[in-house]
Design a protein around this nucleic acid. Structure first.
Lengths: 245, 245
DNA sequence: GGGTCCGAACTTGGATACATGATGCCGCCA
DNA sequence: TGGCGGCATCATGTATCCAAGTTCGGACCC
C-alpha cells in the first residue's frame, strides 16, 4: 500500500519561497519595511497567505517583527555572519564526527568521490574561471549535504539548514577570486573524506570545523567584497527547505 | 525622546505560548491531530490567530504539517531526544568556549556564584527532596542561560533556545531520583565556572560538552521513567500509528 | 516659537464568509 | 462478496470585512 504524500502547494508556501529569495538575493534591501497591502498586490495574492509567509520568515529571524508595527527586513553585518559561521562550524564538525562514527556506505562514498573529482577537474587549470563558480558551488553544496545526511541526526540537518538561510552564510556564496584559498578548501575536502572512510571521528571533526571556520574568517575579512556584488548571485538551486533527502 | 517598545501582546502570541506549553507538558499527546475549529473553540479565539500559532510551531518542528491535511503533534522518541542533546552539547560547548574567551564580568560572575551556592545548599542534605526539584531546575536554567548570554553570539542563543523547545530536552525536565548523578552534575557547574574565570576556553568547552552530553545519555537510558511522569500511561505502541490520518 | 495634545488616516490583528481539495461512505457492478 | 467509482461531507486555504493600535500632522497652549 503506497503512502501518498500530498503534492499540494499552497499560496502561502509559494509566497514564502519567493519572499525568502528576495531577501537572500537583496531584491528587498535590508532595513526595508514590508507593508502587507502593497506586498500582497505586488505578489498577486491576498493578505492572508502573505501574512502566513511573514510570520514564518520572522520565526526564521530573516525579518524583525513587532506587533502592530509590522515587519522589517533584518540587517546582517559582518559580525552576525561570522557568528553564524562559528555555530555552523561547530555543528558541521559534529555532523562529520557522527558520520565517521557511523561509517560511509558505498553509494555515498561514490557520490563524495565524484564531488572530489569534479572539484579537481575545475581547479586543474591553476586559475579560477568565472564560469566555473556555479558548478563548484553546486559541488560544494552536494559534498556538505551528503555528510550532513550521513550524520543521521535530524537536528544537525535542521540547524545547518537554518544557518544556510542566513544571507552570505549559504553555501551558495563563495568568494571566487583567490585560487589558493579555494585550492586549500578543496584539499580539506579530500582529507575529510579520507578521515570519514578511515572511521576517524576526531580527525574528521577537527578538519570540518576548521574548514568551515576558516571560510567564515575569510568571508568576514572580505565582507565588503561580497556585499558589493549581489549581482554575482547566480541562479540559486531551489531553496525550499522541506526537501527530504 | 523615549523609544517605546510596544508591550502589545497579540492573541497569536498568547495562543502560541499556550499551545507550546500544552505540547511540552503533554496536555496534548504526541501523535494527536490538531483540528482548527475545535482547538479554536477550546482556546476561545477564532481560527486566524490559531493558524498563526500553528504555522509557527510547525516551523519549530513541534508539529508536523501537510497541506490540506492539517497539523499533528510530533512524536519524539528516545533517539530524537538524544540526538537533540548531541547538538545541544556541541553548541553549549561552543558558548562556553566563547564565554571563556570573552571573560566574565563581575556581575555575571556573582550571579553564577549565587547559582552554585544555591545548588550546594539544596544538595547539602545528602538526598533529593521532591520539593527541591523546582528550585534546582530554576537554578540550573539560570546558570546555563547566563553562560549562553556570555557567549555574545546571537545564533548560539537562538539555537540553544530551540533545543530547549523540544519535549524532554527543556531544562524543565530533570531526572530527580539519583543523588549521585545530580551531585556530579552540580560539581560540573563548579568546574565550569572555574574554567570560565580562569579564561581557559578549551577546558570550559570540554567540561560543558560532557556535562550536557552525559545528561542526554542519562535521559536516554531512563527515558521510560520520564515519559511515564506526566501521569499518562506510557505511550503504548500503537499498531495503527502509521496510518496517515 | 516650541512642545504637547488630539484626531484622522493608515496599518495591522482578528473574525467571518467563501473556495477547494481530502476523506469516507454507499451503491453498483463484476 | 469484494473492489471500484462517484458523491456528500468536512477540514483546510484564501479572501474580505471589521476592530483596534500606531503614526503623523496640525492646532492650541504655554
Amino acid at each position: 500500500m503506497a503512502v501518498y504524500v500530498s503534492m499540494m502547494r499552497t499560496r502561502s508556501q509559494d509566497v514564502t519561497e519567493i519572499l525568502r529569495g528576495w531577501i537572500l538575493d537583496g531584491t528587498v534591501p535590508a532595513g526595508e519595511r514590508l507593508e502587507e497591502v502593497p506586498l500582497a498586490e505586488r505578489l498577486g495574492v491576498s493578505r492572508t497567505p502573505l501574512r502566513a509567509a511573514l510570520t514564518l520568515l520572522a520565526t526564521e529571524r530573516l525579518l524583525d517583527y513587532q506587533p502592530k508595527r509590522g515587519y522589517v527586513v533584518r540587517r546582517f553585518g559582518a559580525d552576525d555572519v561570522f557568528a553564524a559561521y562559528e555555530v555552523r562550524a561547530s555543528i558541521e564538525g559534529l555532523a562529520c564526527r557522527l558520520a565517521a562514527t557511523n561509517g560511509v556506505p558505498d553509494d555515498v562514498a561514490a557520490t563524495l568521490r565524484a564531488c572530489l573529482a569534479e572539484g579537481d577537474r575545475i581547479l586543474s587549470g591553476g586559475a579560477l574561471a568565472p564560469g566555473d563558480l556555479q558548478p563548484y558551488q553546486a559541488m560544494n553544496e552536494r559534498f556538505h549535504d551528503a555528510i550532513i545526511s550521513l550524520s543521521g541526526n535530524p537536528w544537525v540537518e535542521r540547524f545547518v539548514r537554518q544557518t544556510h538561510a542566513i544571507p552570505f552564510v549559504s553555501g551558495r556564496v563563495i568568494l571566487w577570486h583567490d585560487y589558493g584559498v579555494i585550492r586549500r578548501s578543496h584539499d580539506d575536502h579530500h582529507r575529510i573524506l579520507a578521515a570519514l572512510v578511515a572511521r576517524d571521528p576526531a580527525r574528521a571533526e577537527d578538519l570540518m570545523r576548521e574548514h568551515v571556520y576558516f571560510a567564515g574568517l575569510f568571508l568576514r575579512d572580505n565582507f565588503d567584497r561580497v556585499q558589493a556584488k549581489p549581482g554575482e548571485e547566480p541562479a540559486r538551486s531551489d531553496p525550499q527547505e522541506e526537501r527530504p533527502r
